[in-house]
Amino acid sequence: MTVFIIRRLMQSAFVLLIMSLLVFFGVYAIGDPVEIFIAADADQIERERAMQALGLDQPIWAQYGFFLLNAMRGDLGRSFVFNIPSIELILQRLPATLELAACAVTLSVLVGIPLGMYAGYRPQSRIAKAIMATSIAGFSLPTFWVGLMLILVFAVQLGWLPSTGRGQLGEFLGIHSSLFTLDGLAHLLLPAFNLALFNISLVIRLTRAGMRENMPMDYVKFARAKGLTQRRVVFVHVLKNIMIPVVTVIGLEIGQVIAFAVVTETIFAWPGMGKLIIDSINRLDRPVIVAYLLITVVMFIVINLVVDILYSILDPRVRLADAGH
């Protein structure tokens, strides 16, 4: 297991290097940030001074070299726009996104697994059919449209829930979050549901498929032949088998939800990372883009590692052996 983790971390470092190289040169190829920052009527001397200040007068490979050297020391550069360290800028916005993502994933587990289990357990019932029909809508309707409809119905028509911002933040153990105040929770509900809808549908379908696949298996019949209650057969024997693929997908979802919360954050004016990255791309704020993507990659790597470890806990046949031998 230790060997497995060390090997995985080394692979991850390599992935990060390649990633940074691609993004760095990619952004360079898109356009020159100086054109955007500097007033159109600036003269040549002003331009040169600005480029020197940002280090943009150096050849690209030298810029990358500097970036790497600084990155080793944990400095991912200063934002061209805000002139503060890009990592700081991102970390300011990260909690809001994490909060939203965590709620969305929790929702998709708490709603998706029970509904999926029911739909798989009683596939012929009307409720199961209704669940499945709804789930099709859930992953076919575009997120932005659902978001707008949610605002229209619950914020505008019914006036039950607020539609923008994080609301009042509460503090608990030094963490500021909307989760700790009623007002914050009210603000969180709509965007979290909007972000979760696709994932709920996905989890429902996956759980249902697992249920339908596992229920006719011999081990289920044998468990029943032992005289176990149906509750124990379903919630211990079958559920633990179903969880194996579901955990994998939920792990991937966490990464996706964090990285691609852009649409929901934009619609609900949620002050998260998604909005920051869109703004940064528009302004060619290279240090922020690079730092954001690196952080996203790190998150994916960590999530995948956790999923692999969870997988080996859930499925005793999987051993995190020293693959590659």
């Binding site: 298996m217 011999d218 081990y219 019949k221 044998f222 468990a223 029943r224 032949a225 032992k226 005289g227 176990l228 209650t229 211990v236 024997h237 633990k240 088998n241 194996i244 859930l314 499925d315 005793p316 046949r317």
Partner: peptide, 28 residues
């Protein structure tokens, strides 16, 4: 259910399929 597994037990055909793969023998 009170009789099943208690007064009447059953052994199945394929031993590879009858035990739950993700639970310890002790649990089962």
């Amino acid at each position: 259910r009170e009789i099943r597994g208690n007064r009447i037990a059953m052994i199945f055909q394929d031993p590879m399929m009858t035990l739950n793969p993700v639970l310890k023998v002790e649990t089962q």
